[in-house]
Amino acid sequence: MISLEPVARPEAPLARRNPVAKLAAALVFSVVLIATLDPVAPAIAIAVELALLPLFGVRPRVLARRAAPLLVGAVGVLVTLVLFAADRSGRILVEAGPILVTSGVLITALGLVLRMFAVALPGVVVVATTDPTDLADALVQNAKVPARFAYGALAAFRLVPLLGQEWQMISMARRARGIDAGRNPLTRLRLFGSTAFTLLVGAIRRGTRLAVAMDARGFDAATPRSVARRQRFGTADGLLVAGAAVLSGAALAVSIALGTFRPLIG
């Protein structure tokens, strides 16, 4: 079932930071790391991320479960590299037809996989520790996002678990009406398509009514909105973003100092 609730302990020192600050920090941290293809900088970054984990109140098991799909991606990277690596320098380890595995290929693969984890984990941590309502509040109050868009999107987000249930309801209703797919993949695909279309139609209809209900409660009024839930962007929040920039910059600096740095472009 879909759940959008944060899974971390909310009172952890960094989980309590302003959602916009957390999001900005995660983006800064990730974007800096994208710049390199070497294994050293991401390895340092992952170490930093894991060390900070307790401060976010995220249990390693939760993180592992959320990041598990990345393993599939890692295998994908490996397979693609073995077949299509640009750089096949180094000692030859395996050679069989189009498959040529060298030590250079393995180092590149290691770099790519580590980079993938290093770039993704900050986002996973932020998502795990942030409530969507708080994020919308902070976007409006601290990032000057127009309230109509932030709360409009938030109201639509509320539909995510509902639409998840709706998907099951539509499937049940189809079953109750005698429609099921059995084992034939083509029938399954067709049933998936028709269920998805029904979901989309229902979602838009629901959205239309939701918009009416929101207007009925004054959402489109010209009066300036007030805020019931205050979000503050304090010094600690600024420090979090700055800290993210410094730490990822440091990881890059170490990699440059060690001579392992491989810029993304060039």
Partner: peptide, 13 residues
């Protein structure tokens, strides 16, 4: 309002 909501709802769906 309906534009904002339906745009977001399409994405959510």
């Amino acid at each position: 309002t309906i534009d904002v909501i339906v745009a977001a709802v399409i994405a959510v769906a």
